[in-house]
């Protein structure tokens, strides 16, 4: 048997979805989402999304990168096999700086992309919202609000009426078929 995932309301324009998102947040729902084909400026504020955690991953990557760059130059050129070049000191933080600099950027970039995947819990090749029969329009030109059944305030009848009050193009129940066993 398939389980109800939530109720989806489809909208045609960004202002409509923006107003709907503000109202859903105001009504006190916590487990809900907005699906848009492109990022909409101001939507994060309307949904009450706090600042992204991705910069933490970027910093960790960059921090490790810099010290790895410095460490390999010291370990390889001064410790493991002291390399004599023009009688200069085996190690100084100046000459390996370009290497450490590039390593900082390299690992920070991996941290950023990895952080984006971790914070978004991607890859996730199946998600119940993809069961929506017009899902392909949501990555094209339509916008949707979806309130999950797991939300404490969720009520099949009331939530549906609540979403219908914004004048959406359609309101549909989304089921989670993978749960069926």
């Amino acid at each position: 048997m398939s389980k109800t995932y939530g109720i989806l309301a489809l909208f045609d324009t960004p202002p409509a979805i923006y107003e709907a998102a503000k109202s859903v947040r105001k009504a006190g729902y916590t487990k809900w989402d907005v699906i848009t084909p492109c990022p909409l400026h101001g939507m994060d504020g309307a949904m009450g999304i706090t600042r992204s955690k991705v910069p933490i991953f970027t910093f960790i990557g960059g921090f490790i990168g810099f010290w790895v760059g410095m460490f390999i130059a010291w370990y390889m050129g001064a410790y493991d096999y002291p390399l004599i070049v023009n009688g200069m000191p085996y190690f100084s933080p100046i000459f390996p700086f370009p290497v450490a600099y590039e390593m900082t950027i390299l690992l920070a970039a991996f941290g950023t992309l990895g952080g984006m995947f971790v914070t978004n819990r991607l890859p996730m090749h199946y998600h119940p919202v993809m069961n929506y029969d017009r899902f392909e329009r949501l990555t094209d030109d339509k916008f949707a609000v979806i309130i999950e059944a797991e939300d404490a305030l969720f009520d099949m009848q009331k939530t549906r009426e609540f979403l219908e009050s914004f004048g959406p193009a359609e309101v549909t129940v989304i089921t989670d078929e993978e749960e069926a066993e």
């Binding site: 699906i35 848009t36 990022p39 999304i49 992204s52 995947f117 914070t119 978004n120 996730m124 990555t139």
Partner: peptide, 14 residues
């Protein structure tokens, strides 16, 4: 990668 255009994703993505 299963991208679904969720605004919670767009926030981290941006």
């Amino acid at each position: 990668m299963g991208w679904r255009g969720s605004n919670r994703h767009w926030s981290n993505y941006e």
